[in-house]
Simulated assay, not measured.
Amino acid sequence: MKKHLVFILVLLISALAMAQEDGRVFGVVINASDDSPLESVNIVNLNQVIGTTTNDKGEFSISARVNDTLHLSYLGFKSIKVRVTNDWLKFGSSNIELTELALALEEVVVNQLKLTGYLEVDIKQVPAPNDNYRYSISGLQGTGYEASKKSGLTKVIGSIFNPADFLHRMFGKKPNEMKKLKKMKEDDKIRNLLASRFDREMLMVLLQVDRVDLDEIVSQCNYSAGFIQTANDLQILDAISECYEEYKLLSRGRSRKI
């Protein structure tokens, strides 16, 4: 009899575990000021690294487990994080409010060349040519990004043999966050989302780094300042991912030698 009770108990625990693994949450995202539904809000499960967007009624559905964190972002609105609760999974849809941001437009100054007709004077006004190489990048067709002439491997190698190096500290001490890079690259919704963004917000949230460290990682991986300033978030993701894969490869090689 006891054996049967233990067997039933095991089945119940397994069923509960499977229910949590296969759970989905449903929700409606609305404008906090007038309760109107918000279409195309970006929702990312930070734990599972999967994404989705709301439909024209503000509705969404995404795979989630208890205590997963959902990150919601929408242009012109304050981004928020929402924790998935057992009640949410059990009882169905929930309304989530986003608050509009008050944005102030900054003055933009456009500098034009004022030619004098004297070659020696005019030539000094022409910006120096960019001597960075240009590389292709996944996710973009017919375009590329810039990196300096010096091999990007140089600083990655340095981070392996110098434990105090910035890349070693970032890659070595944040393995769980960096493992998300592969999942981010595999999820089409997240890739499409990042391809249209330039604010680095999603990357910072997923990788648990601030903007300064994020830019520093790309810089230490030997990408140019021009690339860092103009690249979209997908390009930054691919740049960091490639650099991290090189770091892991070199790190394993060093460990075997030791």
Rank of each mutant, 00 (worst) to 15 (best):
M178V: 04
P175G: 07
P163V: 03
N132K: 05
N132R: 00
M184K: 04
V82P: 01
I190M: 01
E186S: 15
L167V: 05
K155S: 14
K182Q: 07
K90W: 09
L105T: 09
G144N: 03
V126H: 02
F161N: 12
V121P: 06
T154M: 06
T143W: 08
S151W: 11
S151C: 04
F171S: 04
T143D: 09
A147C: 12
I123Q: 14
F161R: 15
G142S: 13
K81Q: 11
I123V: 15
V156L: 10
A104F: 08
P175C: 07
K173A: 09
I96T: 03
D122E: 07
N111A: 08
K180W: 03
M170G: 00
K179F: 10
D87V: 06
E107K: 08
N95T: 00
D188A: 12
G139S: 09
Y145I: 14
D188I: 07
P175T: 12
A147T: 08
D188W: 08
I80Y: 01
I160Y: 01
K185E: 13
L101Y: 05
P175M: 09
N130Y: 01
F161I: 11
F161Y: 14
K173W: 09
D165S: 11
G117I: 13
D165I: 03
F161E: 00
L98T: 01
A147F: 04
E177R: 02
S138D: 15
S138Q: 11
K155C: 02
D122H: 06
G172P: 03
K183V: 01
L101M: 12
E120S: 15
K185W: 04
K90E: 13
E186N: 13
F91D: 06
E100R: 11
K174T: 06
V108D: 02
Y135W: 13
K180M: 03
A164Y: 11
I157P: 00
L89N: 03
L119Y: 15
G117L: 15
K182T: 12
S148Q: 12
M178R: 06
E106P: 01
G152N: 14
W88T: 05
K173C: 12
V156H: 02
